[in-house]
Nucleic acid binder design. Structure first.
Lengths: 197, 197
DNA sequence: GACTATAGTATCAAAATGATACTTATTATG
DNA sequence: CATAATAAGTATCATTTTGATACTATAGTC
C-alpha cells in the first residue's frame, strides 16, 4: 500500500485512487511479489500509481487489514500531477478513511525529516527558503522562527543559492535555492529528551 | 522475526536461538498469524522467545529473505536471563549473520530514543544516572557530557530520585533513580539539520 | 506617493552547552 | 590508620545557540 505525499495548496496531500463511486480516500495497493526486493516492489507500485518513481521513499510499517499490508511512504515534488483515476487529497480529509496507513506514512516523514532530505524532495529542484520553511512547518505542525531557520540551514551547508529570484505576488522577490549538501555534520550535539511521559 | 535487545556486559546484546550446531546468531521467528493484530502476534512471539512480553516494542521493518519477513524490535531490562536454548549475543558479533534485521532493530531503537523511553526500558526499575548515560552512549555510539546529560535529564522531569544508594566497587555510591515522567515537554526547540548529504 | 505585504538582515538578551575543576563518599592498598 | 585511587555528583564560567524584535529591501496595490 502506497502513501505517496506531496504538497498541494499549502497542505500535505496524499495520492488517492478514485474508487468506484466511493468518496473515501483509497491508497494505491499492489500485491507484494514473491520475488525481487521490497525496494523494487515499491518502485513498481509507485510507477503504476504516480507514473514515476518517487524522489524519496521508505517503509512505513505493516498493518493487519484484511490480511497483511505493507505501507510504503513516498514523496514526490509539489506540482506533480496525479494521473487520471487518482487525485491528491489533503491529509486532513484522507485520514478519515485510511487513517492508520496515512498516519504511519506521516510519522515516517516526520521522523526522518532531520536525517534525510524529505523536505527538499517535497519541493521542485529550486525553491525559496520560505517554501522550505513552510514544508518543515507542515510536517512538524508548528511554526518556526524565520531567522533561526535560515541561520541553521545555511550553517548546515545544505543549500546553495541560484542566480534566480522569484517574484510571487506582493512583497520582495525571493531568491531561489537548490539542495546541494556540502559537508557532513561533524559535530554532534547534546541529547534531547522529548519524551511525552 | 524478533530482534530483542538488552544490555549485557556493558554492550548491546540481541537474543539468539541456538540453531542445530550453528554458531551463527539466529533470531527467533514465527509465522505471522492470519488473524489478530500484529501487536498481539509480536507479544506471542516474544513470550515464546524470551518468556515474557517486552517492556518496549516496535515494528522495525520488513525484509525479503526467502519470503516476506517482518522484523519486530523489542527491549527487555538488563539482567533478563535468556531461556534455555537461547542466549544473549553481543550485537557486534551477531551482525555478521543477521545483519539486516538487527540493523533495522537498532535503527529503530536509536530513532525512538528521544521520543520514547527506550533507554529506561533497557534498565531495571531503579538505576543510576551513570547507567542511564551508558545506555544512551551505547545506542548513540558516542560519548556524552556528564554534567550536560544530567542537567538536561533533570530539567525534563523524567526521573525521580529514590531513597536508595548503590555502592558499586570503588568510588562514591550512586543514587538510584526511577523513571517517572512528570510533565509534557511544552517548549519545542529549533529544527536540526543532521542530513548527511 | 502612501500603504501593504513578503524577503531578508541585524542586534541583542536569554538560554543551552561543554570544558574544567572542584567536592564528596567510598574501596583498595600499604 | 593513612593515603591513594576511583567514581558520583556539583559549581563555575566562557562559548555557542536560540528567539524576539526590529530593521531594511523590493515588490504590488490603492
Amino acid at each position: 500500500m502506497l502513501a505517496c505525499f506531496t504538497v498541494a495548496d499549502g497542505a500535505l496531500a496524499v495520492l488517492s485512487v478514485d474508487g468506484a463511486g466511493r468518496r473515501r480516500a483509497q491508497l494505491p495497493t499492489a500485491a507484494v511479489p514473491s520475488t525481487g526486493t521490497l525496494e523494487h516492489a515499491g518502485d513498481v507500485l509507485s510507477r503504476a500509481a504516480v507514473g514515476r518513481v518517487p524522489v524519496w521513499r521508505a517503509q512505513a510499517g505493516a498493518l493487519m487489514q484484511d490480511g497483511l499490508v505493507l505501507v510504503v511512504a513516498a514523496v514526490v515534488p509539489a506540482g506533480t500531477t496525479a494521473p487520471t483515476g487518482s487525485r491528491w487529497v489533503a491529509v486532513d480529509r484522507a485520514l478519515a478513511s485510511q487513517g492508520a496507513a496515512i498516519q504511519a506514512g506521516i510519522t515516517m516523514l516526520r521522523d526522518r525529516l532531520d536525517r534525510e532530505p524529505v523536505a527538499f524532495r517535497l519541493l521542485p529542484p529550486t525553491f525559496t527558503l520560505s517554501e522550505l520553511q513552510q514544508v518543515y512547518e507542515l510536517l512538524l505542525e508548528r511554526r518556526l522562527h524565520k531567522a533561526s531557520f535560515r541561520r541553521t540551514l545555511l550553517a548546515a551547508h545544505l543549500v546553495e543559492p541560484t542566480e534566480a529570484w522569484r517574484s510571487e505576488g506582493r512583497g520582495r522577490p525571493a531568491q531561489l535555492f537548490r539542495y546541494s549538501p556540502r559537508r557532513r555534520r561533524g559535530v554532534q550535539r547534546s541529547v534531547r529528551f522529548e519524551l511525552m511521559g
